[in-house]
Each structure stands twice: as C-alpha cells, then as structure tokens.
C-alpha cells in the first residue's frame, strides 16, 4: 500500500500527513492528524456529522478523497473557538439546549458557520436549508434552528 503526502491548512495552521490510498478526509483528520471533532455517522454522505469546511464551503469529509485537499484550507469544530473565547454559535448552542447526545453537533456547527459566514442574518428558512444535510436524532431540530438564529443576533421564534 502506498502513502501519499498531503499538505493543507487545518484551522489556519499548516498540516502535513501521509495518507493511504483512497483514504477519506474524515479518517485522515481523525486518525492521521488527531482532530477528533468531525464524527463518523454513516460514511455515505447521509448524516452530515462529518461536515467540515473546505475553502469556506461545507463538505462531507467522509466522501472527500483526502488527497484532493492538497493546498486547501480545512476548518473543523476544533478551530471554532479562539483560545478560551467560544464562537457565538457555540455559545448559542449551549444556551439553547441545541445538543443532547452531542454527536451531530460538530457537523451542525460547521454547516451553520458556513451559512453565517455568507449570510450573517439568515431567515429561518435559510437556516433550515443550511442544515438540511445534517441529521439530528435527539433534539428535533427546533433548538438548533433557534440557536443558529440566536447566534446571528436575531430573535428566535419561541422566545421572540
């Protein structure tokens, strides 16, 4: 089995790893680089728990051939906080009870970040669309939608 070197930026810092043939980005991030924040839920693109940003856009790391991120910028939940300062989305998820088991949360956060980076004040429908590729089995989505709206500084439906 051959190993291929891949260099990319991970949460703003340079990363370099040797990847196996056909290894996916999720596996490389988790076991190669040691960033455990993206999660495996299906390996087939259906759950969204492995969502990461590549050049600012959400991608499913389980379906991304690792070598294709050569030279690109990858962001994960691990890089959301700045030092001890949590990202507004993280704060809002905590405040709004937007996680129960927490397994979908890193993927949800990245999908939400991609949205807010582009659309700082999204409508509720835009929020729903942005997380439509992410499954949560615990919360019933409403707290997550509320949290994302709250993070954008907008009133949520239920409290507003």
């Amino acid at each position: 089995m051959s190993k291929t070197p891949v260099q990319f930026s991970l949460n703003g810092s340079p990363a370099a790893v040797f990847v196996d043939d056909a290894q996916n980005l999720l596996d490389v991030l988790r076991r190669g680089v040691g960033d455990l924040s993206p999660k495996y839920g299906c390996g087939q693109g259906t759950c969204g728990s492995c969502t990461v940003l590549i050049d600012g856009e959400p991608h499913l790391s389980c379906l991304t051939l690792a070598e294709t991120v050569e030279g690109r910028a990858v962001e994960t939940t691990n890089g959301l906080a700045e030092g001890p300062q949590l990202h507004a989305l993280q704060e809002a998820f905590m405040e709004n009870f937007a996680a129960q088991c927490g397994y979908c949360t890193p993927g949800m956060l990245m999908a939400a970040k991609a949205l807010l980076d582009r659309t700082p004040r999204p409508s509720r429908e835009e929020v729903i669309e942005a997380i439509s590729g992410n499954i949560c089995r615990c919360t019933g989505y409403e707290p997550i939608i509320d949290a994302i709206l709250a993070a954008s500084g907008q009133p949520t439906r239920r409290t507003g």
Binding site: A22, N24, G43, Q44, G45, L60, L63, L65, T68
Partner: peptide, 24 residues
C-alpha cells in the same frame, strides 16, 4: 473516474469490490 465523489467514495468506504482504481 472521480467526479465529486459523492457516490464513488461511498462505494470505496463500503468496500465496493467493483472499483479497484480511481482516476482523478
């Protein structure tokens, strides 16, 4: 041939024995 990989990589992850080489 690898396009976006949304179907091809799913097969790779699940051990699809019909694909032994990916050209990209």
């Amino acid at each position: 041939f690898l396009g976006g990989g949304t179907l091809l990589m799913r097969g790779v992850n699940y051990g699809d024995q019909n694909v032994s080489r990916i050209v990209r």
